[in-house]
Computed example of a mutant assay.
Amino acid sequence: MTDRHPDRFLIAALSAGLVILFVCALLWGETSLDITDAFRDLLAGRHSIGAIILGQLRLPRALLAVLIGGTLGLSGAVLQGYLRNPLADPGLLGVSGGAALGAVVTFYTGLSARVALALPAGGLAGALFAVAALIGLVGQGGTMALLLAGAALTSFFAAMTSLTLNLMPSPYASFEIMHWLMGSLADRTMTHVWLCLPGIVAGGTLMFSVRRTLDALTLGEDVAESLGFRSSGLFGAQMRIVVGAALAVGSCVAVSGAIGFVGLVVPHLLRPLTGYRPGRLLVPSFLGGAMLLLFADGLARVIPTSSELHVGVLTALAGAPLFFWRVIRLKRTVT
């Protein structure tokens, strides 16, 4: 009898690992915490120490790790499947750069110091501007237009960010910008969760809607069109991928800063376990990305350093050696 759900064991294993890491994220910290009592106090509205630590520090941070890590993993899987390139990355669209520029502008104008939510709001505004610019540039063009538009926006936003840093009158503000650009989940609250959640949900829904189209595109665009899967057009796969990935990734960068390698590494590792079918890779990539960021954030919290490490630095340090290893394996296979 043929298994109609070949990925159920993989998804179950990843889900179990995610639950374990999530519980560990709530337990990890300098202060020991009775989770049961803390949750009871939090739900009852009692302002005990455990409820404050759980509700204002650990729970928002763990939820953001799941949402952001999962979104980055999902976006990487979708873009790699659509572009048929295993090295495609969520930063490819230039939206991360737009969100970074929006946040940097709030530092430059001093809004971040006067308004509590100016920083994530500025990042979200920059991401939405990048989404609009990307849609306007790509139009009804194909994958090449998408790649060129993403490269152009990435270069433009990087240049504008560098210019803003160069003109920054305060060295302290420049220091704060560099820290934010490295990516972190520290000092985030439930307000940040609610701020990024709509974009993540809307973008994730659009990306999940192209699962079957991605599988059909492995046979070629002409064959996919003949099977009834539209790649171009206003409601085609490309527009849903562009808008979905841009909204979701932009919302993530707006609250966490730039966190690299998650969207590149996770689909790359899980692809052999899903039979190299891009549609089957989406759910595992979301779960795997959430696990990776939860684990990296836990390491950032427990590694003894004078100041807490940025999670974006840890993901980059973990991702680069993986690709060095893949290059070495590829050279051995070729020779």
Results as ranks from 00 to 15, higher is better:
144 M>W: 06
144 M>G: 08
144 M>F: 06
144 M>Q: 15
145 A>N: 10
145 A>T: 13
146 L>I: 11
147 L>A: 12
147 L>G: 10
147 L>V: 14
148 L>R: 12
148 L>Q: 11
148 L>A: 09
148 L>G: 08
149 A>L: 05
149 A>R: 05
149 A>Q: 08
150 G>P: 09
150 G>I: 05
150 G>F: 07
150 G>N: 12
151 A>G: 12
152 A>G: 13
152 A>L: 11
153 L>H: 10
153 L>D: 13
154 T>K: 15
154 T>W: 10
155 S>G: 15
155 S>C: 13
156 F>S: 10
156 F>R: 00
156 F>C: 12
156 F>G: 03
157 F>S: 10
157 F>Y: 14
158 A>M: 08
158 A>N: 03
159 A>L: 13
160 M>T: 05
160 M>P: 01
161 T>Q: 05
161 T>G: 10
161 T>R: 08
162 S>I: 13
162 S>D: 11
163 L>N: 02
164 T>G: 05
164 T>L: 14
164 T>N: 04
165 L>K: 15
166 N>P: 00
166 N>F: 15
166 N>R: 06
166 N>S: 14
167 L>A: 14
167 L>F: 14
167 L>D: 03
168 M>G: 10
168 M>P: 09
169 P>E: 11
170 S>V: 01
170 S>D: 15
170 S>K: 13
170 S>N: 15
171 P>S: 12
172 Y>G: 06
173 A>E: 14
174 S>Y: 08
175 F>S: 12
175 F>R: 10
175 F>D: 12
176 E>P: 07
177 I>K: 08
178 M>A: 09
179 H>I: 01
180 W>K: 09
180 W>L: 02
181 L>M: 14
181 L>N: 12
182 M>F: 08
183 G>D: 02
184 S>W: 03
184 S>L: 07
184 S>N: 00
185 L>N: 01
186 A>H: 03
186 A>C: 01
186 A>R: 01
187 D>M: 05
187 D>L: 10
187 D>C: 00
188 R>D: 00
188 R>S: 02
188 R>P: 01
188 R>E: 00
190 M>T: 04
190 M>N: 04
190 M>I: 05
190 M>E: 01
191 T>Q: 09
191 T>C: 00
191 T>A: 11
192 H>E: 09
192 H>V: 00
193 V>S: 02
193 V>D: 02
194 W>Q: 04
194 W>K: 07
195 L>D: 04
195 L>F: 07
195 L>Q: 07
196 C>Q: 03
196 C>N: 03
198 P>I: 02
198 P>R: 07
198 P>N: 06
198 P>K: 06
199 G>L: 03
199 G>Y: 01
199 G>R: 02
199 G>V: 02
200 I>Q: 03
201 V>A: 11
201 V>Q: 01
201 V>R: 06
201 V>S: 03
201 V>I: 15
204 G>E: 01
204 G>A: 07
204 G>I: 04
204 G>L: 08
205 T>G: 11
205 T>Y: 08
206 L>C: 05
207 M>C: 14
208 F>T: 01
208 F>K: 07
209 S>D: 11
209 S>Y: 10
210 V>E: 12
210 V>T: 14
211 R>N: 12
211 R>M: 12
212 R>I: 00
212 R>P: 02
212 R>F: 11
212 R>M: 09
213 T>N: 13
213 T>M: 02
214 L>M: 10
